[in-house]
Amino acid sequence: MKKISQAATSRLKKENDLTGKLIRTYAIWFVLLVLIIVMSFISPVFFSFRNFITVLKNIGPLALIATGLTFVFLGGGFDLSQGAVLLLTSMLIINFNPVTPLTFTGSLLFCLAISIGIGSVNGYFIGMQRMNPFITTLGIRYIIGAFIYIVTSGAVVSATVQSDILEFIGFGTVYRIPIQTIIVATIIIICWFIIRFTTYSRRIKIVGSSIVVSRFSGLQFGKIQMSTYVINALLAGIAGVLIGCNIFHIKPTLIWNYDFDAITACAVGGISLSGGSGTIINTLSGVLLIGFINNSMVLLGLEESWQLIFKGLILLIAIIVDMQIKRRYE
């Protein structure tokens, strides 16, 4: 009995503990910090400006789709079609071979319009028609995937003409910082601002927290949910364009590389998969963790098998640690 009451009092202490709250909020950042410190000792190249810039550049597309997915998760939705949208726009932008600023703008707008269109279809079915998001986006994913295969016959899409504009976006730098990273950072800051400060994000969160209650509160939940899918697809489209600028030969199997990464990043970062809670900072922590894991594996020169094993292990540990800490301080 004594033991139990001790546990009870220590639990009471934890509840009043400020550090408890800090740990709960920043659990993943701690995991990330540990990873960075450990890696800095193991690899001499790791802790350098150049390497960090490489990591930031590599996680660009993932950061964008994870940000988009954050909107969807906040609104209580789910999306499996991101990888397909990303693949589609990356292939389109290469296929168009935009050489002059005018053609580039044209093809960019076309790509974005296509992604917004796909997002609207998703959003219409899920938001307005109240269809299950998992099955709907799975279906959309099949349709886009098949469309890509039909157009490309499953072959690699390559750039035929060299385009300076694409190369500039893909490889250009400003003060050693890649243009891509600047674009991604700008978009993420805008999204952070939207989610942190606007009434729109408040609407998303309450719709995600309960559709029924939001209906009784006079919110147009259908349109709000639809908008999250549009934003999500738009960001996936932009991510695709950035990938297109970076890689000039795109395989249709690229879809698998991004299949579950964004979902993992959001979940590991602490976005609730059942909707209503989370911030862009959460998402960023997840994205950075995945980025640094990938980078560390490459730097350590591990074989692909060990890379995958470690990646899986670290992700599992991160999510378990996060979960346990949250439970303890709940």
């Binding site: 979940a267 060990w306 995958l308 094993i309 470690f310 990646k311 899986g312 992700l315 599992l316 999510i319």
Partner: peptide, 14 residues
């Protein structure tokens, strides 16, 4: 979903 995604990476390596 998240557990099995993580496990998927690990098993792919194995």
């Amino acid at each position: 979903l998240i557990t099995t995604i993580g496990m998927g990476f690990l098993l792919g390596g194995v």
